[in-house]
């Protein structure tokens, strides 16, 4: 028995390696994938660079640092490559810090929602019956709630939400989509011979879920993660744009909100354009990455990869 399972694992490992390599080969051919990855690398670089300006001079601190000589909006200059905002803060350092926040929000919200979605999808699919019905109806309820509107409501009712709360709620609203797909996948796996075999061999439910089902649904979860990242970033940005974001973080949506609310929308293009372009491009790159991975995994699996 133990020998058999070891064998099984080895086969699976090999299977994984080859799958990854062949996947990578397809991915490399994908035009979209390449663009997406390049863009993402650029944004990652931006996020890393965000630590540099405050070291150069405290006036480059994105939130609290103001240029001692400038107290209004100014255009690009050698001192401030993108100009300054209405109180003399450096826009470039804000933009860089925004990249960090976008990654943080996007990845953590996506990770949480995919984790939730996968877990719930697997449980629902594997357990079936009552648990399935209950969880899927719950998913239905959450799915009909427009995430942005609900978050707006929460923000308006409970006061300014902290960025982690926002992340958490985005995750809470985004899992049902994932869990539906994972459930379907689990359902189809459940009756595959190797699962039946494991069950006959006396493997516990937990073991079956973790050893046999999880590895098979993970690639799909991973794919969903890229789409979840885009939607998380967009929701956070929209919330911040409408003025319901976390005022203690500098995100691109926040920058847009400032330019909008302080009335510099139409006379400071160096302030209005960069954050908008960044939000659009980072969502685009994650989206492209997702589609490229999609092609790698299985073109037929895609039905509902749309994010809003």
């Amino acid at each position: 028995m133990s020998g058999k399972s070891l064998d099984n694992r080895r086969v699976q490992k090999f299977h994984w390696m080859s799958r990854f390599l062949s996947g990578w080969a397809i991915f490399r051919q994908s035009f979209l994938g390449k663009i997406g990855l390049t863009l993402l690398a650029l944004f990652a670089l931006m996020a890393l660079c965000s630590f540099i300006p405050p070291l150069v001079d405290p006036m480059y601190q994105p939130m609290a640092g103001v240029d001692p000589e400038i107290s209004t909006v100014t255009g690009p200059s050698t001192r401030h490559w993108l100009g300054t905002d209405f109180m003399g803060r450096d826009l470039l350092s804000q933009l860089l810090a925004g990249a960090r926040v976008a990654f943080m929000v996007g990845v953590s919200a996506a990770f949480m929602s995919v984790f939730l979605g996968t877990a719930i999808g697997m449980i629902a699919g594997y357990m079936g019956k009552f648990a399935d019905t209950l969880l899927m109806r719950l998913a239905d309820i959450i799915m009909v709630m427009p995430a942005l509107v609900v978050l707006l409501m929460l923000a308006a009712l409970f006061g300014q939400l902290s960025i982690w709360f926002i992340v958490f709620f985005i995750a809470l609203f985004r899992w049902p989509g994932v869990s539906r797909v994972i459930r379907a996948q689990t359902l189809s796996l459940k009756h595959r011979p190797f699962i039946e075999a494991a069950r006959v061999a006396g493997a516990s439910h937990l073991r079956i879920i973790f050893r046999h089902i999880t590895p098979n649904v993970l690639p799909l979860s991973f794919l969903y993660m890229t789409f979840q990242v885009t939607s998380a970033i967009i929701i956070e940005a929209a919330l911040a744009f409408l003025g319901f974001g976390d005022p203690r973080t500098i995100s691109w949506g926040m920058m847009l909100q400032w330019v909008w609310k302080t009335g510099h929308m139409f006379n400071a293009p160096y302030w209005l354009l960069p954050p908008g372009i960044c939000i659009s491009l980072i969502t685009l790159s994650f989206y492209m990455l997702g589609r490229a991975m999609d092609e790698v995994l299985d073109p037929r699996l895609r039905k509902e990869g749309q994010t809003d």
Binding site: L32, T230, I234, A237, A238, F241, L256, W260, M265, L272, P275, G276, I279, S280, T283, L284, Y287, M288, R291
Partner: peptide, 19 residues
């Protein structure tokens, strides 16, 4: 077409509206 669709689809809506 695909790239065009992807680009317009992922533009940040309120920002596009303002532009």
């Amino acid at each position: 077409l695909t790239v065009g669709a992807l680009v317009t689809h992922t533009v940040f809506l309120p920002w596009l509206a303002l532009i």
